[in-house]
């Protein structure tokens, strides 16, 4: 390739990239599906159509913490866990939990919605700060959790370059929440 051809190729590639950036940018929708500013709004959106939502504030006992720790292979330090239960026509719609954690330097908030059998219905990223954790709000990434439950192999959740810590934070969080549900509501550990 001679120099002139090469320069022209690079110039075309360069201009093409800009066109692509603009076109794709206009096409793409917002990455975050849920636009809410409070935990209550997030939970209400999760149980849209519910007659009532019960907020269960559960103070964990030492045996419960130990059981959750065993399922997650991690030390559990939570003293209190808050679960929301959606009720419609006397029927249980499922459970939701909102976690707020410091991720690398800045916070990230997400909600895990579960079916009554303890399987994950969906995971939503509600709010995050800084720019290093986009990857975790992509539906393609979050959808991996759907159907997982305590005892699933969370090591199978894929990583994302540049969002490594956010990926680990949320994966560990979803694992903890499913384990807590199993221990508290299904195994009924006291």
């Amino acid at each position: 390739m001679n120099t002139e051809n090469f320069k022209r190729t690079v110039r075309i590639l360069w201009q093409g990239l800009w066109v692509m950036v603009i076109v794709l940018g206009l096409m793409a929708g917002n990455a975050s599906a849920l636009n809410v500013t409070s935990t209550q709004d997030a939970v209400k959106a999760a149980f849209s159509g519910a007659d009532k939502i019960i907020k269960k504030r559960i103070r964990l006992t030492t045996p419960q913490r130990a059981a959750i720790g065993k399922l997650t292979t991690r030390v559990i330090r939570d003293k209190v866990m808050i679960f929301y239960v959606g009720v419609k026509g006397g029927q249980n719609m499922g459970f939701a939990m909102v976690e707020r954690v410091v991720n690398r330097s800045w916070t990230i908030s997400y909600m895990v919605v579960m079916n009554s059998d303890g399987s994950v219905k969906n995971v939503e990223v509600l709010n995050y700060e800084g720019a290093r954790n986009w990857g975790v709000q992509y539906d393609s990434w979050l959808n991996q959790f759907d159907g997982m439950k305590a005892g699933s192999d969370f090591r199978g959740v894929s990583g994302i370059t540049g969002a490594t810590i956010s990926v680990r934070t949320i994966t560990a969080g979803v694992q903890k929440i499913t384990a807590a549900y199993q221990v508290i509501f299904l195994d009924k550990v006291k």
């Binding site: 636009n35 209400k44 959106a45 849209s48 009532k52 939502i53």
Partner: peptide
């Protein structure tokens, strides 16, 4: 963009949230 003030989709302000406390050593 970190501060999003839009209303949530499917929000239902009539839903009652009842609080329950339980558990502890």
């Amino acid at each position: 963009w970190a501060q999003n003030t839009a209303q949530p989709k499917g929000q239902n302000d009539d839903i009652l949230i009842i609080e329950e406390d339980s558990g502890g050593d």
